[in-house]
Design a protein around this nucleic acid. Structure first.
Length: 584
RNA sequence: GCGCCCGUAGCUCAGUUGGAUAGAGCGUUGGCCUCCGGAGCCAAAGGUCGGACGUUCGAAUCGUCUCGGGCGCGCCA
């Protein structure tokens, strides 16, 4: 409908240019807006005010000429000039009601858009180190990423979701060493666990598996393991040197391959746990991309060579540097350390080279806000690889602060209260968690109140919206219990003439635009506000009018409207990963 | 010190990309049918959009400066 209106104005604009009212070379973007106030009609256009200067006319005079040039349309009831020169359009009731029939015909596909047709997007999100279970801090990235993916799909994009698994590097070695040490403990060795090792219970669980499957096969005397290893921090040494010494000793005593096997066992267990957790959270991936696969296939050194061949590196202090400052980064970054080891950036460049090779049109990375300093160097890398920096969109998600009512929860591992995403889900439920995480714009700090998320009242927007859906379902249950049946053929939508109904129909017709705007801006939160508005309008309607009335034509008309509302609530909730229950 | 994000009602936040009288929820106050689900509805009160200057027909929105809060500035990942 909006497009139809726009084409009318475009026609008028062309006409006025032909008549030399507006300079022929002038280009104008015609914007049609929804009105806020019903007295301003359904749509408004500010074209007259935009062009007044060019046409050397008063806005209101120009508006009259524009209106005179507007082609006739069956959808438009009347046109008015208002305020400083707005042109307001009022739709005919038939045109308004067409939204209902459209929704009932298109069902689940109502609201889908084609603005992304033919474009492919890779969304990488969460990508937490597989060294332990997911934290509530990861939840926001998970909920936002999944909702954004579904939103972009709804807008017609071809979307792939990916989790980058950091299964190479020092953190993984520390995990492997932690598992092996716990295993040695289970074998009966006694020693002090390193202060920098992973202390969580899940490490014990993995060690127990290792012990169950291999008995004492990988056992070495603690005295051998700790011989010549630098002292730990509590003993006056350095915790980093201590753990590195233990890692080296593990590789030496077990051999590289066996050490990798231990690592792999831990990795599989933890990653399996993460995948299961996210699955329960309604978040799934198309690809789990292994960082280790990059190194083992030599892709990292290949990527470094590519950057080097482009002339974007230099050597200094025995290290190889990437001249990212050539592309606007504050300073250059190390790719290969003095000791020959690769930096995280090096494998990240290889990873993004791989993403580019796979031919995506848009690469979206969702990161925690604390990583914003990293954006410039990665964008620099994209350019060094010969691609356009704008291809990479890094979306930052601010931190969420957990509250229990007034009480702010400390999310430290040590406090032991409420740390994992699983606990959050178990406490407040998937729907509430998903909704709360996406109801704020990503760049807003989020206060997540557990009490509110659990409360069953108007305070809680999730239940409020779901309740609207369930209520409609309940009306139809009541209808069939009374032996009635919904049949739109027996409806006359012109009977929907109350202000409540006009408001609802207007909201329903706005859904496709809302999806489009939210997708363009990467802002799923726009949907949460839309859904709340729609639910509220329905609850108001419900209290003001009865649907199951003796007047069959009226009753069928109202039921048709209800059915359309139910459909849109369902479509919207689905995009943000929240269920639309028939009973609550 | 430099960079990024945020400052809107007592609290938590929207604000259709520069439009008409700045909107919701919570909280406060007062109301609602023996009725299709009260997890609901109606109403009232509540504002110098952090501040200043600028851009123009028009600014919460754009620009400069300034104040306040969060985060980041490793040969860590």
């Amino acid at each position: 409908m909006k497009q139809h209106i726009q084409s009318l104005f475009q026609h008028a604009f062309d006409q006025l240019q032909a008549d030399n009212v507006i300079p022929a070379d002038h280009q104008a973007v015609i914007r049609i807006e929804r009105t806020k106030d019903a007295s301003h009609g359904d749509f408004a256009c500010n074209l007259a005010m935009m062009l007044a200067k060019k046409a050397r006319m008063k806005p209101r005079d120009l508006a009259e000429k524009i209106i005179a040039a507007l082609p006739n349309s069956e959808a438009v009831d009347k046109v008015e000039i208002a305020g400083p020169g707005f042109i307001n359009l009022f739709l005919t009731s038939n045109a308004s009601h067409s939204a209902i029939t459209t929704i009932l015909e298109q069902k689940q596909t109502y609201g889908l858009s084609q603005i992304g047709a033919g474009k492919s997007v890779l969304i990488e999100f969460v990508s937490a180190n597989p060294t332990g279970p997911l934290h509530v801090g990861h939840g926001r990235g998970a909920a936002y990423g999944a909702a954004l993916a579904d939103l972009l799909k709804a807008a017609g994009y071809n979307v792939s979701k990916e989790y980058y698994v950091n299964d190479a590097g020092r953190q993984m070695d520390i995990l492997a060493a932690s598992i092996w040490l716990r295993y040695l403990d289970l074998c009966g060795e006694s020693f002090t666990f390193p202060s920098n090792g992973y202390q969580g219970d899940y490490v014990w669980d993995i060690a127990a598996t290792l012990h169950r499957e291999n008995q004492d096969k990988y056992r070495h005397a603690a005295s051998d393991v700790f011989a010549d290893v630098p002292a730990d921090e509590p003993d006056g040494g350095d915790k980093e040197l201590h753990i590195d010494g233990l890692i080296n000793k593990m590789k030496q005593l077990l051999g590289e391959q066996t050490a990798r096997d231990v690592l792999q066992l831990g990795l599989d267990a933890i990653l399996g746990d993460i995948e299961h957790d996210l699955g329960q959270f309604g978040v799934t991936y198309d690809e789990w991309f292994s960082e280790y696969s990059l190194t083992s296939n030599n892709l990292v050194s290949k990527a470094i060579d590519q950057v080097k061949d482009g002339g974007f590196t230099h050597e200094q202090d025995g290290a190889l540097w990437f001249k990212s400052s050539d592309f606007g980064d504050e300073k250059d970054r190390v790719l290969v350390k003095e000791n020959g080891a690769l930096t995280y950036l090096a494998s990240d460049i290889a990873y993004h080279a791989n993403k580019l090779e796979r031919g995506f049109d848009i690469l979206i990375n969702i990161w925690g806000a604390d990583h914003h300093g990293y954006i410039a160097r990665l964008k620099a890398a994209i350019q060094a690889l010969g691609a356009d920096a704008s291809k990479l969109q890094v979306l930052l998600v601010q931190f969420a602060t957990l509250y229990r009512g007034q009480e702010k929860l400390q999310m430290s591992t040590r406090s032991g209260k409420f740390v994992t995403l699983r606990e959050l889900r178990e406490e407040v439920g998937k729907d509430a968690a998903r909704f709360f995480y996406v109801q704020r714009k990503a760049e807003q700090h989020l206060d997540f109140d557990l009490e509110l998320a659990k409360s069953q009242s108007n305070d809680n927007p999730v239940y409020y919206i779901q309740y609207a859906h369930a209520r409609i379902c309940s009306v139809f249950r009541e209808l069939s219990e009374k032996g009635g049946e919904w049949d739109i053929a027996k409806a006359d939508l012109n009977r929907l003439d109350t202000s409540h109904e006009a408001e609802l129909i207007k909201l329903l017709s706005r859904f496709p635009e809302t999806v489009e705007n939210a997708a363009k801006a990467y802002e799923p939160h726009q949907l949460t506000y839309y859904l709340r508005d729609l639910a509220q309008a329905f609850h108001t309607y419900y209290n003001a009018h009865k649907f199951l009335v003796d007047d069959a034509e009226l009753s069928q008309s109202r039921l048709s409207l209800c059915k359309a509302i139910q459909q849109v609530l369902q479509n919207g909730l689905t995009i943000i990963g929240v269920s639309a229950p028939e009973v609550m």
